[in-house]
Structures are given as C-alpha cells and as structure tokens.
Design a protein around this nucleic acid. Structure first.
Length: 543
RNA sequence: AGGGGUGUAGCCAAGCGGUAAGGCAUCAGACUUUGACUCUGACACUCGUAGGUUCAAAUCCUGCCACCCCUGCCA
C-alpha cells in the first residue's frame, strides 16, 4: 500500500510495467553537513528502495569544485550510517566527467549546443525577464566544426574562467527561463577533490544530474520542489544525448522540503555560526545538523519515525517542533533508564536517620523487562530547589513547611524546620523520616500525593548540565539571521546525580526522573560529567 | 493574460464522486511511589472562495483569491 503520492506513482509504474525494478539515489553536494531536512530525503529514497526491493545509491553531486571538500564526503557517510541506512553503492558525479564531456560533444554534433563568448553579465542581460523573452546569443549559429574546435580548446585550458561557456540551443523565448539556452559547461580552473587537476571545465548541475541518473539506472529521481521548473530541461538532456550509456529513463519527482519551527536549515547560516565560533562546531547540540542532533541525544530511530509520520506531499509546510519532540520522547520513554539527578540542589538533613540505608529503585518501569538497582540514603541529601516552597501555590504536592512528601523509592519525610541566609533564601531543610513508611513496605498510615527525586550527598557525582533554548532571538526580525543569534540559547547549571552515572559512556541517555532526558556529552572527564538536555519531560503542573 | 506549483482544524496529514481517517498540540477526567508514561472523552455540519455539473462534490468543470518557486558560468 502506498503511503504517499510518490509511492503511488511508483506502484503504478510497476503495475503498468513501466519499470521492472526501482532505483533511487540520495544526491548531496559535499559542501556542508547534512541536516534534518536531508533526513527526510534519506527516508524517502532509502525507504522506497527498501519497500520495493530496489536499490539506492549515495551520489555526490560534486560538479562545483570551488565549494566542495573531502571533509564533507566523510561526514555525510557517517551521518547516513548513523541513521542506519545501507546504500547499494557510492558514486560521484565526477566519476562521469569523461562521459559527460562526450554527451556535450554529441549535442554539438547534433546542432543542439554551441560555444558562447558572452560573459556572465551579457548572458544575464540577454536572458530576458520573467515577462519578456530573451535575445539569442550572437554566437548561437556557429558551425558545428567551430563549436567542436572551441569546446576542445575550452577543455585544453586555452581560455580563462568565465571567458567561454557551452550552452544548450533550445529556445530563448521559452516562458521557462531554464530553457533559454542554459549554460551546460563552464571554464573553471579549480582543483577538484576527486579528479584533482584533470579538468578545467565542469558541467552544470542541470546537465550533469539527468545524465548521472540515467547512467546509474535511477528510475525515480526524487528532489525538492524548487526543481520543478528544471524538469523540462532534465527530460531534454535525457532525450537528446548519452543514449548508449543509459540504463534507465528516469523521471524526476518533486516533494516539499522539511521546515520545522525554530530550526534554520540554511547551510550559509549554519556555516557562519560555526566559523564565528558562536557555537561549538557543526555538531553543536543546538544545530539541526544530523551530527548536532546526534550529540543532542536524539535517537536515529526517533528521527526516522518523525520523517515517516509527517508525510510526503507537494505543499509547503512548517512542522511544529513539538511533533519532533514527541517522537523523541516516545522513543526515549521505552529505551532510557531512569536515574535521579538534581539540577538545582537544595540541602536536606534527615535528622532521625543515623546510619545509611539501601533503597531499591526500578531502572525503567516501562521497559519490557523491569530491572532494579540499589542506592543509598543517608543523613544528608539533595532535592530539587523547586520541590520546596515556603509559600506553595495551590495544589502543590511537594515539600513545604510542616508538610509531607515521599522520597522516590524511600521514605516519606516531614519538614520540621529550615534555615535561610540574609537574603531569605532557603539554605537547608531539616526533615524527619516517617517511621515504617519505606517504599513498598509502608504501613505508616500517612498518605502523600507528592513524590520527589533526591540524591545522597555522600554517594553522588557532580554534573554539568546544558539546557537549550531558541537559537534565534524572536524580535528584531529585520536583522540578519546571524545577528539574531541568541547567546542564551545554551545555559549551564551545576548539579548532582546518582553515583551510577559514573559508569556511563558518552552518548548514553537517561531519564532524570521528573525532569527530562539527558545524554552524556563528549566534553565529560573524570571529575565532571557533562550532560545535554535532550528534551524535558512534559509537565502539566508548571505549564 | 510570463511560467511552474500548492491551498482540508493551532500544526502535520488521509481522502481519488457515496456524505471529513490518523498523529502533534490543547482542554477535561481516570490511573499513578515520575504532576512522566498509560487510558478515556472533547476538539472541521465542512475542505481558500464564488458559481456550475450531478440523485450525490473536499473529490469533476469555470472564474476569482492567497501563498511558494523561477531572470547563477550554485546545487
């Protein structure tokens, strides 16, 4: 059963025998890091290959050497691997440069391409406008022989960058500007990450892409909406050259790219943040890059779940961030062990507890197999500062003067007194344990509504916890994205956690009970564990 | 009269001539030793809009409106 309009097209193509097997490709330009928008494309392309027993290649669209780099090639593969997609092969557009050159020669020989001496400005001028047709290049009617000679000399490095181009000869009065004799090859004396110094002319995307698809056997070439206007030229290239190399007659299908509120996918913007050191790198947990999201602690499975749940359509939309977070929580809820962590500690002294005792708590009540661990409770513990209020709001179930609360997995305690500093800030709460109220063995007769987390001060580890807010400041809409960067988008607090956290590995995720989900960051060392907040728990009280 | 797309709830989205799925968010309530999770209920008499065709229209036709994309030797 088809899940979306692309799958409907594919199923029809299979049914009618238009294709016998399905092949897709994921075609990034290696000029930056992948972000969550790419995850959607990855899910569509690899998802289709998987569903219809077809193939999916990674293909780097590396036709512009001035922007591309090996660094990105490696990073892209890592990210795809992290998401768990298995590719059937890796290709580079640059692997086909020889063949593309032949295709261009073929077009010249058919009278369908010509070498143009116009510079960029002249081409732009003669292209016409949205409402006015363009003017034909004065070089449009050169002889095939002259074109062949000139193109060869372009290849041989006889011209400087921009001096000449090869253009398709189509229709300067087409209402579709992409058909107004588009440039298909340009002179570019640049080092290429793959072909090194071999070429000084490079094909344009619009010319290269359909050839790549056809020679690889791609049946369905899936891209984003802004390429809809390019489709006629895509079809033109496939119809007019390279037939002896074609393995398929691919069709281009466009879908709407992913937008998420408060997430900026713009490569230029991300690059500027990284280069300016305003963020920690491409993998900063605030960024929508896949490596950033990974460091933030979002599970790969949750990302894929999200992509599958938002659907694939042709209408532009913006998904609320809460949808993504909901997918992340769904995953973490069943997969994360619970642990107690205190982000803003308040000292509590249990006046009637002299010897430490052992408490047993569940690691994850929602796991398929529930396991437990032992933790100690001794005279001095920490609780969350917000779990004690001198003047509690209505329906406050937590600790208050002369009030009761249960320590998770341990005793009910009663607040007997508290100490404050000169500013009236509470510095210590003195409590007594209610006898016979131990968790699971309570015959004290005391009923409490509130249960709070706690950490034994004699058996804990120090934590540095990062929380993340909006990357951009909301007002000042007239400023550039870069200028709107919110320096408060990352905040740090120092807290304490259960000692077992000492055994965690970088990337391990936990639920800090009643607080949120957290992941151990690579910046941790023996003395200090650094955690990133993945997503907070929902809170129907403090909302 | 430039061309190409798209309009279904606060957000995403099914629907393909037979009388508006589902999810997120929100709001109630139940359960709860996480104010989490889970569960239950509420949430579009109407599909951008105005006409038309039809026994029957979100689905077909026509006009209008709104939004997005296109004038790189970027992808």
């Amino acid at each position: 059963m088809a899940n979306n309009f692309i799958e409907q097209i594919i199923e029809k193509d299979i049914e009618t025998g238009k294709v016998s097997s399905v092949q897709t490709r994921f075609p990034p330009e290696p000029n930056g890091y992948l972000h969550i928008g790419h995850a959607k494309s990855l899910c569509i392309n690899f998802g289709i290959a998987d569903k219809y027993n077809g193939k999916c290649y990674i293909r780097y669209d590396d036709t512009n050497p001035t922007k591309e780099d090996e660094e990105y090639v490696k990073a892209i593969e890592q990210d795809i691997q992290w998401l768990g997609f298995k590719w059937d092969g890796i290709r580079f557009a640059s692997d086909y440069f020889d063949m593309m050159f032949d295709c261009a020669v073929e077009l010249i020989n058919k009278g369908l391409a010509f070498v143009c001496d116009c510079n960029a400005e002249e081409i732009k001028l003669n292209r016409g406008s949205l409402t006015q047709p363009g003017i034909e290049s004065p070089y449009r009617n050169r002889s095939i022989k002259e074109n062949l000679d000139l193109f060869m000399r372009m290849k041989n490095g006889e011209f400087t960058d921009g001096e000449k181009t090869l253009r398709a000869k189509i229709d300067m009065s087409s209402p579709n500007i992409n058909m107004r004799d588009p440039v298909i090859y340009r002179v570019l004396h640049a080092h290429h990450h793959n072909t090194k110094g071999k070429w000084c002319i490079y094909p344009m995307y619009d010319f290269a892409h359909p050839i790549e698809d056809a020679v690889e056997g791609t049946t369905h070439s899936i891209c984003t909406l802004e390429f809809e206007d390019h489709r006629p030229f895509y079809d033109w290239v496939i119809a007019n050259c390279g037939h002896s190399h074609h393995k398929s007659k691919p069709q281009q299908i466009e879908f709407a790219r992913l937008n998420i509120t408060n997430m900026i996918m713009s490569k230029r913007f991300l690059k500027s943040l990284v280069n300016s050191k305003l963020v920690m790198g491409w993998d900063d947990p605030r960024l929508p890059t896949l490596c950033g999201i990974r460091r933030r602690g979002y599970p790969a499975e949750a990302i894929k779940d999200f992509c599958n749940r938002i659907g694939v359509v042709k209408s532009n939309s913006e998904v609320e961030e809460s949808y993504l977070q909901s997918c992340v929580r769904d995953n973490l809820n069943v997969n994360c062990d619970r642990v107690m962590g205190i982000l803003n500690p308040l000292k509590v002294v249990l006046t009637n507890l002299d010897e430490p005792i052992l408490c047993q708590v569940e690691n994850n009540p929602n796991a398929t197999e529930v396991t437990t661990r032992n933790i100690t409770l001794s005279k001095q513990i920490y609780i969350e500062r917000s779990d004690f209020e001198l003047v509690p709001p209505p329906k406050y179930y937590r600790l208050k003067p002369d009030g009761y609360v249960r320590l998770k997995g341990a005793y009910i305690i009663h607040c007997d007194s508290y100490l404050t500093d000169d500013k009236g800030e509470v510095t210590q709460v003195n409590c007594s344990i209610v006898p016979n109220s131990m968790s699971g063995n309570d015959n004290s007769g005391v009923k409490v509504k509130g249960v709070i987390q706690w950490v034994d001060s004699n058996n804990c580890v120090d934590l540095k916890v990062r929380k993340f807010g909006k990357l951009l400041i909301e007002d000042n809409q007239d400023l550039t994205l870069f200028e709107r960067f919110n320096p408060a988008s990352m905040t740090e607090v120092h807290g304490v956690g259960e000692r077992c956290l000492r055994d965690a590995q970088v990337g391990d995720r936990f639920q800090f009970m009643r607080t949120g989900y957290f992941v151990l960051d690579q910046d941790s060392d023996e003395n200090l564990l650094v955690f990133n907040e993945i997503v907070p728990l929902k809170d129907s009280f403090n909302k």
